[in-house]
């Protein structure tokens, strides 16, 4: 197994479940910063791109800590903020990377516009519809509730990431309470010491 394949294999379990569930648009958030949300979104995007053989759009919607935009060195580029403010079109904002089959929408100028349910709904319906999978990197719920809730209403599934043995339970419960969605979010346990999840059982439970 090559090094990239080995790295992406870390996220194969998560990606295969997403694939099995048929989720097209998913969002990753957490209770606190530093839980590994952006890394999970990036890894899952890569893994799904390889798995589905289709285009995957990775959206940096983290208004508080746009680390993916920095990773892509697109801090000064137009992005989601400009797209929502109608100051740029999707073609100018979305970067496509052929080797990885991942398209990336950076945050852009975060001070320019705030995400609204209508704006995001329009984006999902028009711009993101051409992608087989859309993965959204969101800020922590407790720090950026207003940036998370509009996405939570639009994505097929929202995932709350927490670090095993690190994230304080009361804060996770507080974050879940703020989300208060009709369908409860799924938990992704990051940096688990041993993967003890029974995959078939988990899939059956998820579908139930």
């Amino acid at each position: 197994m090559s090094a990239p394949a080995s790295l992406m294999a870390t996220f194969d379990g998560l990606a295969s479940r997403v694939d099995a569930m048929g989720f097209r648009t998913i969002g990753f958030t957490s209770a606190l910063l530093g839980e590994g949300v952006s890394t999970l979104a990036l890894g899952t995007a890569l893994s799904l791109a390889a798995m589905r053989r289709g285009s995957v759009l990775l959206v940096d919607a983290n208004w508080i800590h746009p680390s993916l935009t920095r990773d892509a060195r697109l801090e000064s580029s137009v992005g989601l903020a400009e797209l929502l403010a109608d100051r740029a079109d999707a073609a100018a904002c979305i970067r496509r990377y052929a080797p990885s089959r991942v398209a990336f929408l950076p945050l852009g100028d975060g001070m320019g516009a705030r995400p609204t349910l209508r704006g995001l709904a329009s984006f999902v319906a028009k711009e993101a519809v051409s992608f087989e999978t859309v993965i959204v990197d969101l800020p922590p719920v407790l720090a950026g509730e207003t940036f998370v809730l509009p996405w939570a209403a639009l994505v097929d599934q929202l995932f709350v990431v927490l670090r095993e043995g690190a994230t304080p339970l009361p804060l996770i419960q507080q974050a879940l309470g703020k989300l208060s969605l009709a369908a409860p979010p799924y938990i992704v346990l990051n940096r688990a010491r041993g993967s003890s999840v029974d995959v078939p059982a988990a899939l059956l439970a998820a579908r139930a």
């Binding site: 992704v188 993967s195 999840v197």
Partner: peptide, 9 residues
Amino acid sequence: ARLFAAVPR
């Protein structure tokens, strides 16, 4: 909320 997946360390 339910567990969806565990990503190994």
